[in-house]
Amino acid sequence: MLQDITGPDERAIAWDRIEQFIGYGRADAPVVFLGMEEGADNAKLLPDLLGRSFSGQYGEISRKGATQRTWSKMCHLMLRREGVECPTPAQRLAYQRERLGKHSGDTLVAELMPYPCQNATGWPKIYEPRFRTRREYLERMAPRRQAMLRDLFEAHPRELIVCYGKAHWGYYRGIFGAAPQSGQPIEIFDWRSTRVVMAPHFVSRSFNSAGQLDAFAATVLR
């Protein structure tokens, strides 16, 4: 019997559809978490992108799996928002599996940029036919995505939008037309009727302990 040695074809990637993807959860969620881009294993990008080529604008975070470091901090904040004083690791994991980024939940876990990547400096070759460099990608795609997210955020009442990853605050501010605040570890401002927070990345040392997470929640939710 002949062995099929053909593999997935990069030409089948639906780039336009991938570039419309927003994130995981409800489009009209009262709480939005916004990062720069999803992480990914660059060696597995082709099957990942082929899978995304059949997705809509909103997916759901899987109900399976272990604690994810970034999502766990989001779960802590959401539990505090609901009045849980000292969320435990088990409670955070349960929230991640059952409620975070779900169509029936209170969160939208979104990304500013649509292409998953292993880090924020490299540029996988699979993206080069679409954008030759990361710089070109950011220059051309970021304004489109900022406008898309601005329209989405304006379309529904929002209680809170948390933008995380300090290196990318400039891109996030562009969504809201916000000016930088001088020397603040966390920036907070009102946009329309929504509280917007610029925070460090959730895997940074700023969120190492439960005490730090509680202090952040107290500042953000006051």
Rank of each mutant, 00 (worst) to 15 (best):
Gln68Val: 06
Met113Asp: 03
Ala66Ser: 14
Arg69Cys: 06
Lys166Ile: 13
His76Lys: 04
Ile161Met: 05
Lys73Ile: 15
Gly174Asp: 14
Gly51Leu: 02
Leu45Arg: 04
Leu108Gly: 04
Tyr24Gln: 03
Tyr115Gln: 01
Asn208Ser: 08
Arg80Tyr: 08
Ile126Met: 02
Asp190Cys: 07
Asp214Leu: 06
Phe21Ala: 03
Arg69Ile: 04
Ala27Ser: 13
Arg92His: 00
Arg145Tyr: 08
Arg92Glu: 10
Leu100Gly: 05
Gly51Asn: 05
His103Gly: 14
Lys125Arg: 11
Arg99Gly: 02
Glu85Asn: 02
Pro185Ala: 04
Gly51Ser: 09
Ser62Asn: 11
Arg140Tyr: 09
Pro30Glu: 02
Pro89Ile: 01
Glu85Phe: 06
Val162Phe: 11
Ala27Gly: 13
Val31Pro: 01
His156Asp: 10
Ala43Cys: 03
Leu138Tyr: 12
Asn208Asp: 05
Val220Thr: 14
Phe21Thr: 09
Pro116Ser: 02
Glu128Thr: 12
Trp71Thr: 00
Met141Asp: 14
Arg130Ala: 01
Arg26Tyr: 04
Ala90Thr: 08
Gly170Cys: 10
Thr67Trp: 00
Ala12His: 15
Gln118Lys: 14
Gly211Ala: 14
Ala199Trp: 08
Gln20Leu: 08
Phe216His: 13
Trp169Cys: 06
Arg63Ala: 06
